[in-house]
């Protein structure tokens, strides 16, 4: 059962990663990479690593995404 769940989550992660790399819109790409972080935190949980899952959930999906958006906002400001 867990294997099926892991496979579904894996498809979501791979699609998210592909979208993050190939999308022209930067905001959509950054959100997609946040989804990859979120899904990978669930994968860590399935592999019996709750410590890693906790860190990845707060860093991979929240803090990294936020820092990317701060950078993007700054770049738009500089643009005028």
């Amino acid at each position: 059962m867990l294997t099926v769940l892991a496979a579904i989550l894996g498809i979501a992660a791979v699609v998210g990663a592909y979208y993050a790399i190939h999308n022209e819109k930067l905001t959509a790409a950054i959100i997609a990479s946040g989804i990859v972080g979120m899904v990978s935190s669930i994968l860590f949980l399935l592999l019996a690593a709750p410590d890693v899952a906790m860190t990845e959930a707060s860093i991979g999906s929240a803090l990294t995404t936020a820092i990317f958006f701060f950078t993007l906002n700054k770049i738009r400001q500089t643009n005028g």
């Binding site: 410590d51 906790m54 860190t55 707060s58 803090l63």
Partner: peptide, 14 residues
């Protein structure tokens, strides 16, 4: 329990 310095620090930062 699961947790420790890194996890707690990351949650405080969020």
């Amino acid at each position: 329990t699961p947790g420790g310095g890194f996890q707690g620090g990351a949650i405080i930062a969020s």
